[in-house]
Design a protein around this nucleic acid. Structure first.
Length: 306
RNA sequence: CGCGGGGUGGAGCAGUUUGGCAGCUCGUCGGGCUCAUAACCCGGAGGUCGGGGGUUCAAGUCCCUCCCCCGCAA
């Protein structure tokens, strides 16, 4: 098939790579425009752009594809469009261009976790499993008919970054299987059950503010689910202490109480219900490190309240 | 030239304000204690203080410059 790919971040790269390796023809790639990024505000191409250029595939970066990408897309004459975390909403006009429609690789077990941050929200909400779903795109946001799914367990200390990486590879495999079945003509479309759907908001920095009055389960989800961005954090000495990874722990105390703080025994903090063990931490100006290492150079007295 | 923090034995940090013997919590090596230990006691090794240049009797500390890391903002 002649395919146009649309995607932007790392998550989309494995899917694009699989398409490139496959017998399909990748006629073009749409991705977000280069954005100023990092220190010095350097203009940075998206991971998908880098991948496409390396493969010699034409790249299109309209500010809004609905407005100024339509003719480029039409001229590529795709049989099918494939999207993965593209970051722009497709209009009906665009969806009508490929005769076989548009397939999206979404990083959740739909209909749960629609929206742009499904993986983080799965961890945030304490889900035991996460997954990827391939679906036919329609006018709504992640509302189209589902095609295939793959599921995986969420580790109790797994962070969003790690899960994203795993799901991106699973998504690429699932995409290839979806295309295979599509060509064979035995792909079933499964409508989403609207009663079970959830739509999750984009992540913001405010979500990183830790409230130890919440349950240990919720705090742990917040710490792991918001890593690597925006990260859970608490005020600490002229800055913020980022809590990057957490595990369940025994113990109880007043919310925020330091139950254990020792270079050998680690750091355990009391929550509204239960406690969490903090495994990775980042001080202002410092690198991320194991909490045990952090405690060799910083004093957090046991019994104090954060 | 977007704003700011940082680089000190193997790890994590203090010391820089006010130049004057290289320090802390660990790790590591050797010995001791113990039924035993990530415990405790005794002793030791290990540092071009990110690189280069300058000021000074004397620089981790002050000045210039380069490199690298991190956060914010986008």
């Amino acid at each position: 098939m002649r395919i146009v790919f649309m995607g932007t971040p790392e998550f989309a790269v494995p899917s694009l790579e699989k398409l490139i390796e496959s017998s399909h023809e990748v006629a073009g790639v749409f991705t977000q425009p280069d954005r100023p990024k990092g220190r010095g505000n350097r203009l940075t191409p998206s991971p998908v752009k880098v991948c496409a250029q390396r493969a010699g595939i034409p790249v299109f970066q309209p500010e809004r594809i609905r407005r100024d990408g339509v003719e480029d897309l039409r001229s590529l004459r795709p049989d099918l469009c494939v999207t993965a975390a593209f970051g722009q909403i497709l209009s009906q006009e665009i969806l009508d261009i490929p005769p076989l429609g548009s397939i999206n690789v979404h990083a959740s077990l739909l209909p749960r976790h629609r929206g742009s941050a499904p993986i983080a929200h799965a961890i945030l909400q304490g889900d035991r499993t996460a997954g990827v779903t391939t679906m036919m795109m329609d006018r709504g946001i992640d509302t189209g008919d589902m095609l295939l799914k793959a599921e995986t367990e969420i580790g109790e200390t797994e962070c969003c970054g790690e899960l994203t990486e795993r799901l991106s590879r699973m998504g690429a495999e699932l995409l290839m299987e979806t295309l295979r079945q599509m060509e064979e003509g035995n792909l079933r479309r499964i409508p989403q059950n609207e009663a079970e759907m959830s739509y999750d908001p984009m992540l913001t920095k405010e979500m990183g503010e830790v409230d130890f009055r919440r349950s240990a389960e919720a705090v742990r989800g917040q710490i792991n689910g918001l890593n690597p961005w925006p990260c859970a954090s608490i005020p600490w000495e002229d800055g913020r202490l980022k809590l990057m990874r957490a595990a369940p722990a025994e113990g109880r105390g007043i919310p925020g109480e330091v139950l254990v703080s020792d270079p050998k025994e680690g750091l355990v903090l009391a929550c509204g219900e239960g406690a969490v063990r903090v495994l990775e931490i980042q001080a202002p100006g410092g690198k991320r490190m194991r909490t045990e290492d952090f405690l060799r150079g910083h004093r957090i007295p046991a019994g104090s309240v954060l």
